[in-house]
Write a protein that binds this DNA or RNA. Structure first.
Lengths: 342, 342
DNA sequence: AAAATAAGTGGAACCGGTACACTTTTATGT
DNA sequence: ACATAAAAGTGTACCGGTTCCACTTATTTT
């Protein structure tokens, strides 16, 4: 465990001033003779010198770190989002500080405090929906905030990148209606979440277009965490006139719902057709292969990173960017055509 | 976009010196009158002051950041590991810088360079197996390095946390043998990886104990990324005397293998019994429910974080910590008992 | 009541880089 | 050759915290 050499050690060993070493470190910041440059480089190598990021950051709040604040990473959707964000960021030489909220606004506020102290240049987040004041403060501080997947309606000035939740739920529901289903259930996210609400709205629109009756018993909001999805599924199965088709629009609860259906001995798609919002490779391996709504995670990630880094300064003038990317409905075998419905 | 207040702004507004403000910021670093303290706190609040981590870090390389260097996060195993590591770290007030290597040693070395410059206090990594010199350098610099899941045999002085790969593959194979299988195939990780090798070794041991012949044709190493697993599965199916049972010991390739088996019209467990190393919730939902080897990811995470933070100083004396946690074999329905084998 | 001790505060050096203003060396033009 | 411009290199003040030390003002001890 040796003590770390500093730029002054390098300067001394190379027989030059620290300014020259700094120039070698930052090409383009000033002229250095080729011979000197290589000599300094040699010294740095033999001394095992590495400039300290912390010292650099002190001068200017450098756009070299991004905060990624997700609900959790065990959810494959967020995991893949994190993976893509990290890759995108690395491609731009940016590092990612990963944090999770567990959907807990108290934890969220703590994480945000840390991110403020670190003076990250941007934050990509799936907000819990609270902590309005902190989000506002962050923007005032000049931190670029991008909400991904969800948003907070009362913070309209924040950039948002998400899929078109309304349209994706609408088209999934429309597909079921087109297959003759008249009792279509939906399990979505919490009513407080934009994704939860927008998807329900799309669902309602599809029913209306298809001329189907809207039954509030068929609409369930489930929390993102815990067994909420399974409970919602059970509840749905036990109503007087149970659905013949189900849209699972809460990605975090897909496996919970399927587990419950399986335990209940439900035949898919025989007694219940299913469409899920989830693009896990496993969905294709199920029996039957599940019809899914696929979210273009790579696009979400790319746009998020881009926004989080673009607005580095200025530009906070105009209206916020709202990017909606289209989700893809992938038809497989979990939706049955109802013959005798009329 | 206001400009950020500094400690001097706070001091001036509160009518005290910066030293006092600093003491308020770091309780226990010196005496402050209660009245002064609350006055300073008020000023900090109204000014919206947040101390800059970068400035703090300049004084001492503070153990406030951990590097987490994984192959990728789209793999659910690593995703859940990342999730747990982040939670463990947060519980200790530590932040996590997430990086991915894509199993590419060039990328790995770049990420490591960044981590050195950031002076992180510890690194938890799934090493590609190269960059020996850099890993050594990191240790010399006093950075605590912990390999998780895999290790590098030629770096025996690095701490390692993993499951008992040998034993878990042995017991899975033994289970198959006990069910009467005599032709048991295995698809593991690359021969260059410790997990790949150790699991094969456990497999061989089980065969030997069961008195079964070892056929090299039944042993396949597959890369962690790409279609390698699927290809290995196809190859295995097409040998002269194909296996009646298969251990998929390469977690990253499980879905690839299953996809190939499915496309080939293989009946599980009718014509092929299967045990996979993967604890995804989906494995239970498959038809049939898959028998799995479950890795205790929370334990891996907890021990890794603990080691990465414990050795902060001193202690580099003794021999490295090697922690092996037991994996759990969860029997479900993808293994058939062979009746007529003799 | 004098001396010793403790509490509260301020001044300034320092951490390790960056960058500006400036001096010295080398190259260029006629 | 000589003036002049460009290139190379140096000194040093920052950035925003922390901390050591000196100093002043209470509080306690005997």
């Amino acid at each position: 465990m040796q003590k770390q050499p500093t730029i002054r050690d390098v300067a001394q060993a190379a027989g030059v001033s620290v300014a020259v070493v700094s120039r070698v470190l930052n090409p383009g910041s000033g002229p250095v003779a080729a011979a000197t440059r290589s000599r300094v480089n040699d010294v740095m190598k033999t001394l095992g010198y590495h400039p300290r990021t912390a010292a650099r950051e002190l001068k200017f709040g450098p756009p070299t770190t991004l905060g990624l604040l997700l609900a959790d990473v065990s959810n494959p959707f967020f995991a893949r989002l994190a993976d893509q964000v990290v890759q995108e960021a690395h491609a731009r030489g940016i590092q990612v500080l990963l944090m999770t909220t567990q959907e807990d606004d108290q934890l969220e506020s703590e994480r945000l405090a840390t991110l403020i102290e670190r003076r990250v240049s941007g934050i990509i987040a799936t907000p819990t929906g609270n902590n309005l004041a902190i989000w506002k403060q962050l923007q005032d501080l000049g931190t670029e905030v991008v909400f991904v997947d969800r948003s907070i309606p009362s913070l309209p000035e924040v950039d948002v990148v998400s899929i078109d939740n309304f349209e994706s739920a609408r088209s999934a529901t429309a597909l079921l209606a087109a297959h003759g289903h008249r009792r279509i259930g939906i399990i979505s996210g919490p009513a407080a979440s934009t994704t939860g609400r927008d998807r329900i709205a799309g669902y309602r629109q599809a029913l209306e277009t298809a001329g189907l009756e809207q039954d509030e018993l068929l609409i369930r909001h489930a929390a993102f965490r815990g067994p909420a999805g399974g409970d919602a599924a059970s509840a749905l199965l036990n109503i007087e006139e149970p659905p013949t088709a189900l849209v699972v629009a809460n990605t975090a609860q897909v496996t919970e719902v399927l587990r419950r259906l399986s335990h209940a001995g439900i035949d898919i798609p025989g007694t219940l057709s299913v469409i899920v919002f989830d693009d896990s490779p496993w969905t294709e391996l199920m029996t039957p292969a599940l019809t899914i709504v696929r979210q273009p995670i790579d696009l979400l990630a790319r746009h998020s990173v881009q926004l989080a880094l673009s607005n580095t300064q200025g530009k906070r003038s105009g209206k916020p960017n709202v990017i909606r990317v289209a989700a893809e409905l992938v038809e497989r075998s979990s939706v049955a055509r109802l013959q005798f419905s009329k």
